[in-house]
Design a protein around this nucleic acid. Sequence first.
DNA 1: CTGAAAGCGCTTACAG
DNA 2: CTGAAAGCGCTTACAG
Lengths: 369, 369
Amino acid sequence: MTDSSLRPRRRSRTAAASTAAGATEPAVLPGKATINDIARLTGVSKKTVSRVINDSPLVHPETREKILALMKQLGYTPDPQARGLAFRRSFLIGMVYDNPTAQYIVNMQYGALDALRDSGYELVVHPCDSTREDYIEAVRRFALQQKLHGVILIPRVSEDEQLAAALREIGVRYVRIASIPLDAASNMVVTHDRQAGTEAANYLESLGHRTVGLITGPRRYRSTIERGGGFVEGLAERGIELAPDYVYEGGYTFDSGVAGAEYLLAKSPRPTAIFACNDEMAAGVYKAAMRRGLSIPGDLSVVGYDDSPLASQLWPALTTIHLPIRDLGRRAAQMLLADERAPDEEGASASRNVTPHLVVRDSSQRPRT
Amino acid sequence: MTDSSLRPRRRSRTAAASTAAGATEPAVLPGKATINDIARLTGVSKKTVSRVINDSPLVHPETREKILALMKQLGYTPDPQARGLAFRRSFLIGMVYDNPTAQYIVNMQYGALDALRDSGYELVVHPCDSTREDYIEAVRRFALQQKLHGVILIPRVSEDEQLAAALREIGVRYVRIASIPLDAASNMVVTHDRQAGTEAANYLESLGHRTVGLITGPRRYRSTIERGGGFVEGLAERGIELAPDYVYEGGYTFDSGVAGAEYLLAKSPRPTAIFACNDEMAAGVYKAAMRRGLSIPGDLSVVGYDDSPLASQLWPALTTIHLPIRDLGRRAAQMLLADERAPDEEGASASRNVTPHLVVRDSSQRPRT
DNA sequence: CTGAAAGCGCTTACAG
DNA sequence: CTGAAAGCGCTTACAG
């Protein structure tokens, strides 16, 4: 009978154990037992089983053990839909993003999933087009209809105050990943991009570069303000004025990197180094340099930002700022889960801040004299 | 009152319309009305409302119109959790994959989401590690616990018969994306990779290449068998024997592309063209060629596979096989949805087959004589 | 520490 | 074409 009771429950509300037929019939689906089965077989009320499911301390240890043992035996897992209906929320985490690079999205997803593994929560992806007038309304409906437990907002939608406000209004928890604290600390994972931009500037200045170019993302992006701003500041602190016409506003795309480099490399004097605000654009700089017959790093030093796989694939390998994207995703998801597990576990708070750092590879060296 | 009845319902089970206070209170959440509210306000039973929700023809047109109008007015959407609980399944589609490139994953997701938009279904991502002994069990638990409406299986997990069997066993619908029909047509989106491999061979032969190299994916991957096999066949048909030592087994990664090219370019005679079974590896070939001072396409022609963004970013732009990944994702999701909408809509069947085709860019030309 | 009743927002079977 | 009853698998109040 031990054997047969290991078999999953059928729908039957009466028979407790499998019938003799269980041995001859093909194996039935596990994971189909319900709270009622558990209650009946252990001789307690479903409310007590519910208490065990929800880790209530108000259950006699022996009773708890007995219930847990049976759950394990039957492969029982509470139905998230039923729980959700009763709780008036779901066990889904939404990930909302506009149009970052594929690597960025995928790593962020992996990170979030790292944190959600075995938590009973699942990740629902929700790309959107923030240039559409109704995109906030769409996210709002999504969150509302799915009764999301929480939402992870990725740049650049994470920078949209109206989106955050809409989520607050409907009472949906969110975590914003951004380069400055735009919100309460408990809603933020902050990447100190400004500091990293300054580090890039210090590095290039220390190599001896005096004429440098900068390719930014769209000006309205916070990351552009921080990365680019930090870079300009860093140069200024060391006495180098970055002329406005040595700054090119790109779009974080490969093609805009090409265009930016074409522009900058045509200037006189020609910059001996270019800082691109992400690796995609840095890859574009490589292409433009090759076209012009300029060697990297001989004729031109290049520094990127992100340290995506692309960076080490380029030839020569790209010097870049390492941004731990997967970590960011993991932390954001952890914060969303932490709420209920340990409401005031402030220990994790310190780890909510991330400072990217420079990784020196082969695309940078002293300028030719 | 028109104005106030546009306001969303509160939880109240009694008050039909908003109270006078509605005008002064801050706007309440929309999308919170329930089937009971709709039924009460239109004076029908909830069952009739349910019929409208489920597009049953057994509703008087006038009644239906009245109900639909009120739904729209209140911004009512049926609660997927409640529906799911009653239906014994969810409105979630799972996407299961092992470890494709980021571009591949993201495009597939976009494609699936194209099809799911406004369908009431959401996409839950489930990457997994198919080298783990228990990965099938994990996918099975995922599908079972979430009561998934369906699962999209991406190469290489799509090629795993045991996974498919496990899903059939628990009665979860799935669509497999693969390069040959491994399953019933209704469960497959087939990409005819063999044909495309042959096209690459024909192209290179027609340019005049006689000594060519091949970098494949892992041998146990179906895509490798098809792409590589089609290539070898194509050459053979034109009288070119591809010696086994001119075939390198890569891993669909950039680094394995570098290694493969290092190996092939060291051979004597040196191949004048290399076909890499994906763009990532083709990019690796570029790097190896550059290191050796070989120019593309002058000294070496390169053909890739996928036509990912990378292909047009490389310099020179990569000649490659265009695989419409986003389309594949869209079709797979459509098939999952079609089941219930039009059970025997076989019209879409024809479009389940995709034949990738060659896109000639700048990385290939006649060999030097 | 435990449980009976009512409810979450839907649907299925059944009756008309 | 329409509806009253029971149920999906859980939880929240409430009572003890």
